[in-house]
Design a protein around this nucleic acid. Structure first.
Lengths: 170, 170
DNA sequence: CTTGGAAAGTCAACAAGGCTGACATAAACT
DNA sequence: AGTTTATGTCAGCCTTGTTGACTTTCCAAG
């Protein structure tokens, strides 16, 4: 039932074989299993510090955009302020994140990693990059370009702006 | 700090540019945003039925391997039996999944989707495949091959056997 | 035939991290 | 002065993960 489609039209669809339901299913399962691997190493480290994935994500994007506001972060992470606030509060209390009142608009809070926060973020992202680096190296640059390209099209378009897209279509 | 690496050795590393920390970070963020998109459509449908992602995953793999045992499913999904059991129980109670006592080994339970289960699974997977199909089509077959290849290397090796690997290296 | 152990199910308790809704405060904007 | 915006906080709920303890079923080895 998921094997209809291009496979039944061999005559004129050689180049559409990659769009069969079966190919799509494999891609879906690959996403599932790969995402598990993708988060496995940071998760292991986080559990040693009694933090969770949500803390990692917050730290990642604060490191990525130092001084970002809470609202920016909410937009990127796609969670509610209550959810983010719970995470942010513990990170601030524990001295991993610093929250500075905005200079121009004093309602805003600008977020920065402290020295300790930078150290933990680095530990987490080095573990995650290690796995990605190995995968990239084994797959090769062309596969990596395809990987990035497909991921860019899977995400909601608004999200693409959150990392300036490299020129992969030129 | 994440921008060291190959970028500082332009002389002999043209083909390693894809391994810079900055490239890896982009890949990491792409995985994060893409996975959100990947689950968004099924999540919307599931919330109408008061089910969650865990129900979708169980139904997906029961559809994929009709008659699979609970233990098989535990291995694939990587959760505890208590966690899976809670999900499975509601699916069985609601008549979406049928649990048949094993013929050879009557301790085992073989899981099947009922007609209603098949219908919901199809609704979910058609939504998910729709997004994947669009992404695949926009990215093209070569990008898709790279996508699958990189994902295969990101996941834990034991997981690769769960979908028979197609010959992507020939 | 008995018994050890695997497979499955169940109960209880807990935690992370989502969510909604209501409300408070300060600052900026009009 | 009044409204809107940014942020924070309290309370409560849900899903989905966890551990630990225990029972039932039943295959298979002794």
């Amino acid at each position: 039932m998921s094997d209809r489609g291009a496979a039944n039209n061999p005559g004129r669809s050689e180049n559409l074989l990659f769009l069969t339901d079966d190919q799509l299913r494999r891609g879906i399962e690959a996403m599932f299993f790969a995402y598990r691997g993708f988060t496995a190493d940071p998760d292991r480290i986080l559990s040693e510090y009694a933090y969770g994935r949500a803390h990692h994500r917050a730290m990642h994007f604060i490191k990525r955009w130092p001084g970002t506001t809470v609202n920016n972060l909410l937009d990127i992470l796609g969670v509610t302020k209550q959810s983010l606030n719970r995470v942010l509060r513990t990170l601030i209390e524990d001295g991993l994140v610093e929250s500075r009142v905005g200079a121009r608009d004093r309602r805003e809070r600008h977020l920065f990693l402290t020295e300790a926060g930078t150290a933990l973020e680095r530990e987490l992202s080095e573990a995650q990059r290690g796995r990605m680096r190995a995968a990239y190296r084994e797959a090769g640059p062309e596969a990596v370009a395809g990987f990035r390209k497909v991921l860019g099209h899977i995400m909601d378009p608004e999200m693409r702006r959150h990392f300036q897209t490299i020129k992969e279509d030129e």
